[in-house]
Amino acid sequence: MRTLEQTTQEVLDLASKHFNVPPGSLAPEDDFFKKLGIDSLQTLEMLSRLENHFGIELPDYEVQGVSDFRTLASRIQSRL
């Protein structure tokens, strides 16, 4: 079972890899919309990548209003 810290780090690594942001430049408290510069369709892409990576379903309404990596990771953690 992953810890929340591990999950958060995996979310950061995945975001960095797929949205062309230098590794290590993202922090848990960062606003991912601002940091990644993603729009609504790219948000869905991120959701798919997170679900595929963690092997979970993450309903859109659970991440609606979430904008920082740490909270996003906690939503994922509750479904692992």
């Binding site: 595929n52 379903e57 309903p59 859109d60 309404y61």
Partner: peptide, 10 residues
Amino acid sequence: LTGRSINATR
């Protein structure tokens, strides 16, 4: 009734 999106695996 939720309007949620599902991924291809689901």
